[in-house]
Design a binder for these strands. Sequence first.
DNA 1: GCGACAG
DNA 2: ATCTTGTCGC
Length: 234
Amino acid sequence: MRTVSIPGDWPTTEAQARTIQDELRSRVVLDEPGPAPGTGHVTGVDVAYDDERDLVAAAAVVLDAATLEVVEEATAVGRVSFPYVPGLLAFREIPTVLAALDSLRADPGTVVCDGYGRAHPRRFGLASHLGVLTGLPSIGVAKNPFTFSYEEPGTPRGSFSPLVEGDEEVGRALRTQDGVKPVFVSVGHRVSLDNACAHTLRLTPRYRLPESTRRADALCRRALREATVRGLPE
DNA sequence: GCGACAG
DNA sequence: ATCTTGTCGC
């Protein structure tokens, strides 16, 4: 497990963080379809917190996109780098997630985030931010619609409806299991919305949430427990 | 001004 | 996210 510190130039205020989002947003690539779903690698990333001890643990789990078998795992722990503010989640998660991704030997392929990409107040959620910083194709799969609205998709798995703000489509509410609450898919970087949904469906043969995020969730919690016991150096 | 609000 | 018991179901 790698240990990371907060970058020296990390934003301190919400205003600074929003300015960074506004600057980086222009680097998002939206006109690439991305890797064909079911080929290559897919990497789930997730983060767990211990606010008491000011600790954050991240995990990156690389899966074979065809078989969903684990190819490689990596974790990192550090100090919490930003408070939770809706719309600024990325500043809380990114340093540790990047460290976990960096310590991977395998090609991450497409990165699947637990949160949003384009479905964001400034169209630059965690998945977009991570995509721009790494250059990797990325998508966001969130458990909640946040401030966006949607019509209930049909009951069968695979049904979807647009996730909208006003008349702008920012993502999709996608049913990944029959009759189960949909997940909210949005594009991060270098992946089309159609392919983002296709990836999500391939990653959900059995459960509501993608195998990638389920694996990453379990792993970062384990990493947090170990870090809590051992503590962080210095 | 008040409430809502990814994780 | 995290705090938390039991409970229903495969």
